[in-house]
Design a protein around this nucleic acid. Structure first.
Lengths: 340, 340
DNA sequence: CTCCGCTTTGGAAGCGTTTCCGGAGGTCCA
DNA sequence: TGGACCTCCGGAAACGCTTCCAAAGCGGAG
């Protein structure tokens, strides 16, 4: 039992390599101005002793934490989980640890931003699908914490996301193209941030598409509900109870569309013969449900956000943001309306 | 601009409170043998200076990291994400930070366990739905890292999970009770750990239930596929191509069942009139899909795992594990067979 | 041949806590 | 009244690293 295994430190490595601690530190940290041979000797010694630098000591002495925080409003939603997946893979490959923070409502968020930077726990922060206001941002930058946004429509920060307006247009234009003129919309809002419409672009797209097609906008055809499948089902019920129900429905997200489909099926309506349904996201189950949708590369967005963090940490300037493309995926839930 | 705000340390607090650093440290850490008045004075000083102890320094000097790691085989699957959600909420309430590690195949896992404990990055580790072998466990315990398992069938470690055998029986017994005698099973395996059947209990349940009901077991009625919706669809196709297809299907998880449903619908079969389908998990979309399933409290399991970590960290002994109950949820995807 | 400047290395001063050790004062009982 | 013991507190030594400052070695320009 190598009882020493837990006590070896950089001094041991330095001794074994026949150099000073200063040199050992430089070699291990890949600093310049270390002779190749020396560096190799140090690395070999470290390997032999299976030595790893103590993150705490390193950080205390001025190094980086090698940790990045991720702030998520809803951990268990597919969208965020998939994003997190991509993000984590990139960060892990770069030997960075991922600290996960769930931040629900505005109060949570406020507390979070107040406490986190206190003693730098992370080198960078990735904020998924929620806003960051100026004071918060300033505070973080002051403490040397970089910040990247993803999956939201945050304009003022380095950010990777889709173009919600374009995505929405792909969905609604598809319905218009099929000949629908009475098109319902199920918009969603985040229950945790009720005052902040989750995806305003998707709503604007609806109006723009109808206007462009010369279709008058009937406010009764828009229903806004908190995100979620059952709420989507409720929304659809409301739409069905209209004197003149829509012949097609545009849901802001696939999960909501699934709910709508349930309602329609229970009402005995056939999809797409009696009514068309289109969603956004391309949730993995959308394929199984045969749902027409607008696909967005979710995991990829997480990866890109990770890359962004990496370049930020390495001092490179990043562009102001990346917009990833979306793509209409036509499946069996949409068809021309049966009657004019 | 309080330029000093980022430089205040415990010495400042101690000075302001008129005590030594030793006392300040004890007061802040809630140690005994500190006069109440003194403690109050220190706390007030800390508050006034909005001081927070440096985790790095604290750890370096012998404290805890106040971090716990979570190891997950698949971040974006609902099951793991939901578990993570519950876990994070408990841990965050206890002021512990959550480090997220995605570990895919066996190689990943090996590397992970080799590297992690090197320099204690965490006080405890929660392993979600994957095995931990004895050497790994020993190593961790040696380094003072506690370990808790969840969502798996790991018997030898403090662990929270459902009883897979019981859950499977609830599903299959239900089909038997309805009068089905020709029951198919879609079993899954984890693509990342092909040699380690994901949920052996669910398979055993099938055999036990049929045997108890005096139904002979036809190996052709069992199809094993990698986890996932599309694979579930494939499996169902294979089952349908049998000379004598089943009148009911038991899928090891809801996502897989969704795939099966798709295949059945495409084949023009009605559910439940022509064929019954039952899953396990009670995925949020199962309700929308009207799928009969066996519900398990996923988020709750995460919370319980979190509590377990908490008591482990506070030195309390935990029982060897917690088994949470499952519950059959009968929806519209199951019914008696149409013909004997 | 000397001086300048560059690369490479070592010494040592922190970084901000925790905790061991010891001392001061007070209480309680014989 | 004199220990024995306990509570409360301060001094100072770690903890393991990074980096500033200097110094040593060496090549080439003048």
């Amino acid at each position: 039992m190598p009882a020493s295994s837990s006590k070896i430190n950089m001094a041991d490595v330095a001794r074994r390599a026949g150099v000073s601690m200063a040199t050992a530190s430089r070699a291990l940290a890949n600093h310049p101005h270390v002779a190749a041979a020396t560096r190799a000797r140090v690395l070999a010694a470290a390997e032999a002793l299976s030595y790893v630098v103590s993150p705490e000591a390193s950080r205390l002495a001025g190094g980086a934490t090698d940790r990045v925080g991720v702030v998520v409003p809803h951990i268990s939603r597919w969208f965020f989980a998939a994003m997190l997946d991509g993000l984590e893979s990139v960060l892990r490959d770069a030997d960075l640890d991922v600290l996960l923070y769930h931040v629900g409502d505005a109060t949570d968020r406020h507390n979070f931003f107040r406490r986190l930077p206190a003693r730098r726990k992370v080198d960078a922060l990735v904020v998924l699908g929620m806003p960051v206001d100026d004071p918060e941002r300033e505070r973080l930058e002051l403490m040397g914490v970089h910040i990247v946004a993803a999956g939201g429509q945050i304009e003022r920060y380095p950010c990777v996301s889709i173009d919600d307006l374009a995505a929405g247009r792909q969905a609604v234009d598809h319905l218009v193209f099929l000949g629908h003129r009475r098109i319902g919309m199920i918009a969603t809002l985040d229950p945790a941030q009720p005052d902040w419409p989750a995806t305003p672009g998707r709503g604007r797209a609806y109006h723009a598409a109808l206007t462009d097609a010369g279709i008058p906008i009937d406010p009764a055809l828009t229903v806004t509900v908190p995100w979620g499948g059952v709420n989507g089902a409720d929304a659809m019920s409301r739409l069905l109870s209209l004197r003149e129900p829509p012949t097609a429905v545009y849901a802001h997200s696939d999960e909501v569309a699934f709910g709508a489909v349930r309602t329609l099926r229970r009402a005995g309506l056939r999809i797409p013969e009696d009514i068309s349904v289109v969603g956004i996201d391309d949730h993995p189950l959308a394929e199984l449900a045969d749902l027409t949708t607008v696909a967005q590369p979710v995991r990829r967005q997480g990866e890109l956000a990770g890359r962004m963090v990496l370049s930020l940490l390495s001092g490179e300037a990043t562009g102001d943001g990346i917009t990833v493309p979306t793509r209409l995926v036509i499946r069996g839930s949409t068809a021309p309306p049966s009657r004019g």
